[in-house]
Design a protein around this nucleic acid. Structure first.
Length: 349
DNA sequence: TATACGTGGAG
DNA sequence: TCTCCAAGTAT
């Protein structure tokens, strides 16, 4: 067991803390709304990806009450491109719960926070300690990496979590617990990185077991991951008087609650024209590849212009499709649709 | 406990 | 090109 890690770590943090827009500067009081919003955005998402979204959200919805009153579809559209869209739905649900059940004041305990939509063990602990100064054991992927290295924990990750949590508890101080948590995460993000960790400049190198053993990259130990299956399918670009047919995807499941182009089934073998939303003479408008966490997808875009009364759905001006708030997969396809459209104009001229 | 759930950047 | 990975949560 290493000596206490926190004095060295906090000294390092005082000098090297990252300057992040959601972080209160020394002497400032943290805003729980901004802490919460940033923590949700940062779930499985890089700081670089979050920055612009955080700026737009706080500009447009400066308080939890403002967000609680927002139209859910507009929030989903504003989240488009950030991924894991259940977060956006839970964001609205959480804001409304805080506004309506807590008078617009975030609970200041882990237990109270944990009861809100989209707030799990990590986020509850992070908000409780960063926004409210409570001592909490904060364990994210950074902390898992730092702690498994510090103690050379050989157990593979899922099974190691109780031990990681217990070890983190032993090194978490009573004072400045929020700074300690953020310092651990900054350390993991900038020094104790997954590959090529910068042990030479690490404030904890003297007490790090993996460093002493010379194999920090061996931690954390992870189980081998299964191969991602590959799926195929069709998507449809239907135009009617300059407008494109969009659908709202079901609330749950992949890209749940997001606007999208109509699609057919996604299967292991390429299915010809499944799920066309309307009867039309389809022209091929190109294809895209897209990688999800658990499978890759090849979609072929089928394009047509219809002159009859259109089917029910959301008809969006084609030349303003970029403003619809499509998730990245469909934004890629929409770019192909616009190209198809341009090509037709040229052909007609 | 295991799986579903996005995306873009790094090496 | 391709694999890994990022301030996880819900079920």
């Amino acid at each position: 067991m290493p000596v206490d890690a926190w004095p060295e770590l906090l000294r390092w943090y005082d000098v090297h803390a990252r300057d992040l827009p959601w972080r209160a500067k020394p002497g400032e009081t943290p805003d729980p709304y901004r802490v919460w919003l940033s923590e949700v955005m940062l779930q499985q998402t890089t700081v670089a990806a979050v920055r612009s979204y955080f700026a737009r959200f706080t500009e447009r919805w400066p308080t939890v009450d403002a967000l609680a009153e927002a139209d859910e579809g507009e929030v989903m559209a504003a989240w488009a491109g950030l991924g894991y869209y259940a977060r956006a739905r839970n964001l609205v649900a959480c804001a409304r719960a805080v506004a309506e059940e807590h008078d617009g004041i975030f609970p200041d305990t882990e237990e109270g926070l944990r009861a809100l939509p989209g707030i799990g063990a990590y986020t509850a602990a992070a908000i409780a300690t960063i926004a409210f100064g409570r001592r909490a054991v904060v364990v994210d992927a950074n902390v898992e990496r730092v702690v498994t290295r510090l103690f050379a924990i050989e157990t593979p990750l899922a099974a190691a979590r109780p031990e990681i949590r217990a070890r983190t508890d032993t090194i978490t101080p009573d004072d400045r617990a929020g700074d300690f948590a953020q310092a651990m995460m900054d350390l993991g993000a900038t020094i104790c990185t997954p590959r090529n960790p910068a042990c030479a400049i690490c404030p904890l190198s003297d007490i790090c077991t993996a460093r002493r053993r010379g194999d920090p990259e061996a931690f954390p130990v992870k189980a081998p991951r299964a191969a991602r299956p590959h799926r195929h399918g069709d998507a449809y670009w239907v135009e009617y008087r300059g407008q494109v047919l969009l659908v709202r995807r079901p609330a749950k499941g992949l890209l749940g609650g997001m606007l999208a182009l109509p699609t057919g089934q996604w299967t292991e073998a390429p299915p010809p024209l499944s799920g066309a939303p309307i009867d039309a003479r389809w022209e091929e408008g190109g294809a895209i590849e897209h990688g999800f966490t658990h499978f890759t997808l090849a979609l072929t875009l089928r394009c047509a212009e219809v002159r009859d009364a259109p089917v029910d759905g959301i008809w969006w001006p084609a030349d303003r499709i970029a403003e619809a708030g499509l998730p990245t997969l469909f934004a890629k396809l929409a770019a192909r649709g616009l190209a198809w459209r341009e090509q037709r104009w040229k052909g007609a001229a």
